[in-house]
């Protein structure tokens, strides 16, 4: 009895506020746009009884999804989100791995402090961290002032409102998600394995590629997924740092909903984004599962 009550409360909450909203999105993605409140048809009308439900079913169709395939804005936005997410994940790995490596090889008494320094930005506002780059990257910003002051460039570089700024923003904000799993993999690495490799004639660098990298593989995979998955649906970074040419699907969805008030198309965009995300999410879960089993 008590057990049933314990299960029902969180279960019911998640059903009502997570699963049901989702089914509503699915349903509206199959509806048609209308100039009404709410701005779509059909709406489920129980007053006509069974006939009402039948009419409702009959009026649902895949029109919005067909629309998404015909207007090239959408598939370009999906492709460009995927491209940006893949490149940004790779860049985050390039920046994050040496930091994680340095942390794992730092003296023991430094490590708690280094850990805290990595986690601290995670607790500060995401919006502010993205915003902090606007002043640095703008045409009259600090970076251009510095480079021009040193005489490296004579004309200011245009970085803000380009994809470069989006990459910088993503690497900056998601870096802790990459560092932490790699650090925890490297920290557990048995140093005697490296000594053995060097004794057997490996150079430092070969030992790194043949021993350290394979043994931190799970950390790398986890970090990449933790960066890739949220980046794909990112909205704040492309809106603040990207330009009008930066196409990302999170931004398209937002504009479709708030600016065009086209709820059915916004819902269809959301459904496809989810379908794309399911694959990396399942792969990520499987990697975590394997990790847990390996840890015993």
């Amino acid at each position: 009895m008590r057990r049933a009550a314990l299960i029902i409360i969180p279960y019911f909450w998640l059903l009502a506020l997570f699963l049901v909203p989702f089914l509503i999105v699915l349903k509206i993605s199959l509806s048609d746009t209308a100039l009404a409140i709410p701005p779509y048809t059909p709406t489920l009308d129980f007053s006509n009884g069974w006939q009402g439900i039948k009419d409702f079913w009959a009026a649902l169709d895949l029109e919005n999804f067909e629309f998404l395939t015909t207007d090239d804005l959408y598939w370009k936005a999906y492709l460009s989100s995927l491209k940006i997410a893949v490149i940004a994940t790779f860049l985050t790995l390039l920046v994050g791995y040496p930091i994680a490596y340095g942390m794992a090889n730092a003296p023991d008494h430094w490590r708690p402090t280094l850990m805290m320094l990595v986690i601290l930005p995670f607790w500060t506002s995401f919006l502010i961290r993205v915003y902090s780059w606007m002043g640095i990257l703008s045409n009259e910003g600090y970076l251009n002032q510095l480079l021009m002051g040193m005489g490296v460039i004579s004309e200011p570089l245009t970085i803000l409102n380009t994809n470069t700024a989006v990459y910088i923003g993503i690497v900056y904000t998601y870096l802790p998600f990459m560092i932490l799993p790699i650090y925890s993999a490297l920290e557990r690495l048995d140093a005697s394995l490296l000594e053995a490799a060097e004794d057997l004639g490996c150079s430092r660098l070969t030992a790194f590629w043949l021993v350290t990298v394979p043994l931190s593989k799970n950390g790398i995979i986890a970090g990449c997924f933790l960066v890739f998955i949220p980046t794909l649906g990112e909205f704040v970074i492309p809106s603040l740092l990207g330009g009008s040419k930066t196409l990302m699907i999170g931004k398209v969805l937002w504009e479709e909903f708030f600016n065009n008030r086209d709820w059915p198309v916004a819902s269809a965009v959301a459904v496809i984004l989810l379908l794309i995300l399911i694959i990396p999410i399942i792969l990520f879960q499987r990697n975590e599962q394997k990790q847990r089993e390996a840890d015993g």
Partner: peptide, 24 residues
């Protein structure tokens, strides 16, 4: 289903969570 509903929101893009709750 329950464990799925616990883990899914962690990786759900915010735009989708927001949109679905608003529609609800």
């Amino acid at each position: 289903l329950f464990s799925g509903m616990i883990y899914a929101p962690l990786v759900m893009p915010e735009v989708i969570t927001g949109l679905s709750l608003l529609l609800l």
